[in-house]
Amino acid sequence: MEHTKHLWRAILILVIVVIIYLLGRGFLVPESFGKYGYYRGDNLQEQMNIRVPRHGTGVASCKFCHEDKVDAIIVTPHKVINCETCHAALRIHVEYDSIENFLKDPYSYDKTADMPIFSAQELCIKCHDYQLAKPDDYTTIVVREHLEEREMELGPNVCIACHDPHDPEM
């Protein structure tokens, strides 16, 4: 084959392109990529630390300071509800830097804000209003009938006029 000088030039350019690609790839692909799989391995730790857990561990977290409330509710049908479900997330009330530190020594943390108390009737109705879709073994009332029988109007805080959320059974 004669006249192959141009081929060598083309091959040289190709080799330079390959070198640039390999160098670029070495810089651009993160180091931890491929550590556990086809993804950036560092992200696993990042996701674990993405935010401080706002909710606590349920009733056990509240019991540290509010043992009287927990003891009252634990013998009622409302014992199955987590305190944070009707109130707010724990971190609004006690701002801890990490949940592990809080659980190790909860008494070293002070209250940072009042825990919201939602006394509106919507909170009760969301769960206890009758619907066909709700299971049969769950306590529901037809709100309109329930109030008519007691000659009450549907208005703000009408449920807690008679029911204590921490001891709801009459």
């Binding site: 987590n82 479900t85 299971p135």
Partner: peptide, 13 residues
């Protein structure tokens, strides 16, 4: 950290 997801903890039933 050994906790449950927020939805699991919130569920009353």
């Amino acid at each position: 950290r050994g906790l449950k997801p927020a939805c699991v903890q919130a569920c009353p039933t």
